[in-house]
Nucleic acid binder design. Sequence first.
DNA 1: GCAAAATCAGTAACACGTTCCAGTTTCGTT
DNA 2: AACGAAACTGGAACGTGTTACTGATTTTGC
Lengths: 206, 206
Amino acid sequence: MTIANPSTSTSTEEPGSAAQRDRRKRILDATYDLAAAGGFDAVQMRAVAEQADVALGTLYRYFPSKIHLLVSALGRQFDEASARLNEREIPGDTPADRVLYVLKRMARGMQGDPKLTEALTRAFMFADSTVTNEIHVVGMAMTSIVTHAMHGGEPAEGALTDEDVAIARVIGDVWLSALVAWVTGRSTAAETAAHMETAVHLILRD
Amino acid sequence: MTIANPSTSTSTEEPGSAAQRDRRKRILDATYDLAAAGGFDAVQMRAVAEQADVALGTLYRYFPSKIHLLVSALGRQFDEASARLNEREIPGDTPADRVLYVLKRMARGMQGDPKLTEALTRAFMFADSTVTNEIHVVGMAMTSIVTHAMHGGEPAEGALTDEDVAIARVIGDVWLSALVAWVTGRSTAAETAAHMETAVHLILRD
DNA sequence: GCAAAATCAGTAACACGTTCCAGTTTCGTT
DNA sequence: AACGAAACTGGAACGTGTTACTGATTTTGC
């Protein structure tokens, strides 16, 4: 339905003073709200600053660009999704079934928040090398989710073969392309789902 | 109030007066040159207009946005590549070998023009539903290139199975993701090539 | 408890995509 | 050749991301 706003969880200890953490949190919350309400274009730096009760210069001190801001928000989202999915067993009899299960779960969450998804995906696609760190987090989370599903939810982290990782990466690539096509209005949710299903069966061959 | 929009025609026979065709070509040439020299950011609408010897308003009459402009340039480029590749036999003993041959050829071309590739890829990733037509051209050209390679360069257009098309799409998806990773500086050319090789063998299994 | 350093608010200004407009030129038709 | 429609030019202007600057306020080091 809706993607949980991660602002309530402060599991990882972030550096800086309490006031800094406060401002950072307020900024990310404002970003999240604006993105969820109006998508990429609605996340305007002046609006974020105002809603976070922070000056524009301060906003730029914390996040050097709109892309950094949105990708950081995406990173938190993905971390949360990954954590939720990886701590449970995945239903399904075959790897393909299980992978499709998690992909469909993620798709459902995203379709429930299309504007937010559009904003974060656009930022991800537009990011350059200055955002490499934040983006790497997303890629690894995706690989983790897929391999975890392939192995049926068993914590077989050490048993990942090269082929497992390659398969997960390919599925992640297809997923990303499908996501972009959906976000940019070039394919419907149903077409995206059908394409993912075809691709997963093709790659995991059953 | 005017409806006419010369930019919406992408077929080989372009309508309009000679002057219109002239302007369109000048605009696309200027776009190409600026993109090749400085990438996405260097393709500035005022600069394109000036270099094409056209007023800014005229540029916007032909291409309603920077994204349309760049995606159209990408379409022209892809059409040419597709035509060149499809009129010859593809070397290689297996479908995987042949597909990798054309992918590596394309990769080499792109690495030779990194700024141009960056500009066109960025535009492609940022396009929305108003550019669907132009983007469809690119997608079909990609599918055509891959299926042509799979079948060894034989003109077996009528014999494409659903699976052929699905495979071509998946390979296109992986290609696109790899391209984005390379363009945004998140992976090197060598990593991209290795990933493509792994993925193609995985999908075409031989 | 205090001075220096860092941070912040507020605001102006710049850059580039985009829109709009008034006047001029080109094009197709009669 | 003349006329109306469409296209073109040149330039002003607007919105939003980004930068720069100044004077207050908070934090830090001692």
